[in-house]
Write a protein that binds this DNA or RNA. Structure first.
Lengths: 370, 370
DNA sequence: ACGGTTCGCTAAACCGGTTTAGTCGCGGCC
DNA sequence: GGCCGCGACTAAACCGGTTTAGCGAACCGT
C-alpha cells in the first residue's frame, strides 16, 4: 500500500521548521541573510526530510539550466559509434565540466531535429556538422540561444571553430606527389541518403579542393585524381575501395577523408593482394589514437579534434558571460601531416611518361584479372 | 542598442490572437477542445511570432522531463574515451530515442556525483558501474527516481541487467587449458585510485572467480594463475604486462579483463620479442568491433554491450509506465567465447608436469569468429 | 417555453522554487 | 522621546507554462 515516496517540497521544510518558504530558500542560496543559527536549523530540518531543491523549478526561476547542448544532425546511436565524435565530446565535456556545466546531446527526435531543439533545456549550443543553410539554425536563434558552430564558419553572427582542412589535405597530396604518386584515389565521405544532411559536404569540399590544388600546383593532370564516396567507417572505406577497384580504377595511393575509411581501404587492398605501402600508399584524415596502432601505422592528417570541442565550449561560455552585445569569435585551428608507415614511394613502372601526363590505361584490357 | 531577442511567451500569443492563455495551450496540446478555426488561427499567430512553449516550464507543470539519465561515477571525458561505454551508450540511445526520450549523462560535477544528481532533470536513471553500497543510490531513491542498475544486481528493489561474467571468464580459461596452457597471467582492472570507486571491483571479482574455477576444475594448481592490474586502456594493458614480466612472471597465456588491455598486452609482448600466439596466447573480454581488426584478430569473451544498454532502458521505461507498484525485473545476458587468432597451443617445453592428460588435446571445436 | 446538455472558451489555481518589496522590533543617535 | 537605520524575517509576485472549475450561449427534446 505504500505510494511512491513523493519528494518533499520547500513548503514542507518551511512548515516543519516553522519559517517561511523564503527563509528556506535563503538558507540554501544566501545564508548570510539569515541569523546563523536559523540557517543551520533550517538546513538540519531539510536534511532530515531529505529535501533537495527541485532542479526544474530552479531552472525556471533562475532562467538558466547550467547545461550546454551539443547539436548534431545525426542520430545518437550513430554519434556514439563514431570515434571522431567521441574524441570531440571528450574535449567538450572537459571544459563544460570544469565550469560546472552539464551536457545534453541534441539529436533528431523522431527524425526531427527541430523537435529536439524545442525540447532541449540548455543555456547554449555547440553545433557540429551543421551547415549554414540549415533551417534549424534559425530556430536556435529564435529560441534566444547562443550558439557556436564547429566545422562551419559562414555564419558571422555566430562564433565558430574550424580547422584548416584545405591546407591539411594539400599537405597530404603533396606528400604523395613527392613520393612519385601520379594516380590517386580520393575516398570521400558520402552524405547520408536520408535524414537531415550534415555538413560533411562543406568539409569534403574543402579537402577535395586541397587535394586538387596540390596536383594542379605540380602541373599534374586533374584526371590523376579519381573520387569515390562511402560511409565514414571502416566498412564504408573498404567497400568504397572495392567499388573503385571493380570499376577499373588502379591508383598507387589513396587519400581517405577519415582514418576509419583509410583503415577500411587498407584492409580491402590487402584482401586484393596489394601490400601497403609497397603497392599502395594510404593517407587518412583525423589522426585518431587508433591510427598509430594499426598495421602499418597510418600516415594521416592530424586535426585537433579534442581541441575543437574544448575551444568551442570556451567560445560559448564567453558568449554566455558577455553582458551586452558581444562580438562572436572565429577560430581556425591548424592541421598537420603525420607521416607514418602507410605511405611510401610509388611502385616502379607506374608513372605516366612526363610527356604524356594522361597515360590512360585501357580499363577493359586490364579487367583481365577478374 | 539591440537587446537579446527575448523569446515570446504564451501570454504574447494570447494577446496577439485575442484569446486566453488557456486557449493557446489548448491549441497546442488538445486542439479538439477548441473550434477548429480558432485552433488554426492561434497556431498561425504563434508561428508568426516564432513562439515555442518553454521546455522548462512544460517540465515543471507536467512533472516529467522526457529525458533519461545515464549515471556513471566517472568523469565525462573518461567516459567518452572508453569504447566500451560508447557501445553501451549506443544501445541506450537507440531505445531511448525510439521512445521519444532524450538522454542526459550524469557524472560527477566538481567531483561530486551527488551534486550532479541533484541537478539532473530526468524521469529515470540507468546506472552503470555503480556498486550497491554507493551512497548515491540512496539519493536517487529519495529523489523518487526509478533506476535500473547495469553490472550489479544486488539491489533487489531496483531493476538490473548483468551479463554472465563468471561463465564467460570460465570459458576463456578452459579454452586456454585445453590448449595446454599451465601458466597464465590475469590482467585485471585496477580501481581508480581516487574519486568515487566504480563497480569494476564486482565485475573483476566475478571474472577472476570464473578464471580460477576453470583451473580448479582441471585440477591445476592455483599458483598457475598470477594477477596483475592496470588501467583499462591499451596503454594500461601494455604497462601491466611489462610490469608482470619485469617481476619475473613468465606466462604462456594472458587473460585480460578488457579488449583494450589485451591489445596493450599483445603490443607489449611483441616489443619483448614474444610472438602472438606462438609464444604467448592472449584472450580479451568484451569483443569490441576493434577486436576482430587487430593483428592477430583477438580471441575474446563476447558480451552483448549494446544490448545491455538497450535492455536497461527497456526495463526503465517499463517501470516508468507502471502505474502502481511494479516488481523490478532482473536480466542476466549470456556471454560467449569467440576464438580468433590470438590464442594457440602452449609452446612446447613449458609445461610444469608431463603427466597431465589434457595437455596434448588439440584446439577444441569452438566457434571461429571472424 | 423551459430545463438540461453540449460547445467554446476563460479565470484562477497550480507546478516548486526565487526574488522583490516590505514589515516588525529594537538599539542608537541627537 | 522621536526618528532613523538595521537586522531578521515574511507575504506576495513571479518564472512560463498546464489544468481545473466554471460560465455564457447555443442547441435540443418535450
Amino acid at each position: 500500500m505504500e505510494q511512491r515516496p513523493s519528494r518533499p517540497r520547500i513548503a514542507d521544510v518551511a512548515r516543519e521548521a516553522g519559517v517561511s518558504k523564503t527563509a528556506v530558500s535563503f538558507a540554501f542560496n544566501s545564508p548570510e541573510r539569515l541569523a546563523p543559527e536559523t540557517a543551520t536549523r533550517i538546513r538540519e530540518v531539510a536534511d532530515s526530510l531529505g529535501y533537495r531543491p527541485h532542479p526544474v523549478a530552479r531552472m525556471l526561476t533562475q532562467r538558466q539550466t547550467m547545461t550546454l547542448g551539443v547539436l548534431t544532425p545525426q542520430a545518437l546511436a550513430v554519434i556514439f559509434s563514431n570515434p571522431f565524435f567521441a574524441v570531440f565530446s571528450e574535449g567538450v565535456a572537459q571544459v563544460a565540466e570544469a565550469h560546472g556545466y552539464g551536457l545534453q546531446f541534441i539529436s533528431p527526435m523522431h527524425g526531427s531535429l527541430a523537435l529536439a531543439i524545442g525540447r532541449a533545456t540548455v543555456d547554449g549550443v555547440v553545433a557540429i556538422g551543421l551547415s549554414a543553410d540549415h533551417p534549424e539554425v534559425e530556430q536556435v536563434r529564435r529560441a534566444g540561444l547562443p550558439m557556436v558552430l564547429v566545422d562551419s564558419d559562414d555564419l558571422p553572427e555566430h562564433g565558430s571553430v574550424v580547422v584548416d582542412d584545405e591546407a591539411g589535405a594539400r599537405a597530404a597530396a603533396e606528400h604523395l606527389i613527392r613520393l612519385g604518386h601520379r594516380r590517386v584515389l580520393v575516398v570521400a565521405v558520402e552524405r547520408p541518403a536520408s535524414g537531415p544532411d550534415d555538413n560533411t559536404a562543406g568539409v569534403s569540399e574543402l579537402r577535395l579542393r586541397g587535394y586538387r590544388s596540390a596536383f594542379t600546383a605540380a602541373s599534374l593532370d586533374r584526371t590523376a585524381v579519381s573520387v569515390v564516396a562511402g560511409r565514414t567507417s571502416i566498412e564504408g572505406g573498404a567497400a568504397a575501395f572495392q567499388r573503385a577497384w571493380a570499376s577499373g580504377i588502379r591508383p598507387t595511393a589513396v587519400l581517405a577523408m577519415s582514418d576509419a575509411m583509410a583503415i577500411g581501404a587498407m584492409r580491402a587492398a590487402r584482401e586484393l593482394g596489394l601490400r601497403v605501402p609497397d603497392a599502395l600508399s594510404v593517407v587518412g584524415f583525423d589522426d585518431l589514437d587508433l591510427a598509430a596502432h594499426v598495421d602499418p601505422p597510418l600516415t594521416t592528417v592530424h586535426q585537433p579534434i579534442r581541441q575543437k570541442g574544448s575551444e568551442a565550449v570556451r567560445l560559448l561560455l564567453a558568449e554566455l558571460d558577455a553582458t551586452g552585445a558581444h562580438r562572436p569569435e572565429h577560430r581556425r585551428l591548424a592541421t598537420r601531416l603525420i607521416v607514418r608507415g602507410s605511405t611510401g614511394p610509388a611502385p616502379a613502372g607506374t608513372e605516366p611518361t612526363a610527356t604524356n601526363p594522361i597515360a590512360t590505361e585501357p580499363p577493359a584490357a586490364e579487367a583481365r584479372g577478374t
